[in-house]
Amino acid sequence: MPDFGTVASAILSGLLLGGMMGLIALGLSIVLGVMRLVNLAHGVFLVMGAYAGLYFLKLTGFDPLLALPLLALGIAALALPLYRYLLAPLAQRGPEAQLMTMFAVAIILQNLFVFVFSADTRSIERSYATLPLSLGAITVPLIYVIGFAIAVALILAIHGLIAHTGFGRDLRASAADPAAAATLGVNVQRVQMLTFALGTACAGVGGVLIGVAFQFSPSSGGAYLLNSLAIVVLGGLGNVPGTLAGGMILGLLQSLGGLTLGDGYRDIVGMALFLLVLVFRPEGFLAARRA
């Protein structure tokens, strides 16, 4: 039986990692909520963010975490033409067309990454990414704490944006009834485009964090996509604080599952939990908190 320090560290790092996953899932969630699109390229956008961070460091020498706003803007800017030329023309055609288009974008981008960056595993090398942070018997990686702080700050900022600004009101209205919103003067296409860019930026920022904390390769995206889907369902669609909580719950339970059943069962615990929540609370575990 593992000792207290091991258990406590596992729980804490699970929670912290879950917070970062929450940010990635949030991007998927808002796009799903506003555009009714399960963005199958979300994981690839994450990888794109990681490469952007890596090359930013290589070319400028500046720390990519300090330049996160810039990187986020850059990645969001890349999403705009994708929306404009690939998704917008399919807006009237039901969800499958957009879904398949984003799937195609995902395989094209992944292929492009292999071609340009090779299939090698990369990591954004920062000295603080390998420092421990100890509190008595509990040790967690410092980068988890940094990543968690950044993720929570961004999630709260997005929550504020959606709950308390005019754009957020337009976003919620477009999600609920796009035709009615348009008739009231909301430029729904513009809202969707910005939402798509925001969702992509979430993936990109998450990718930079993952790149610094872990490692990535062109094919890393798939696992994060599946995890994000689980978190979206756990947290309730369109529920911003719920997504953060969902991420942390998933992280915690994966850690606990790993501790009790062995790490081979980490992902199984996550998937099984995901299915259970789906079956018993399809509207999301935390949906009751939704406004």
Binding site: P2, G264, R266
Partner: peptide
């Protein structure tokens, strides 16, 4: 003797057990 999924990314509990 710890086993993990092929594409696992999170090893902190395995590591802290070995350390302990």
């Amino acid at each position: 003797n710890a086993e993990f999924p092929i594409n696992n990314a999170q090893f902190t509990s395995i590591i802290s057990e070995a350390k302990a």
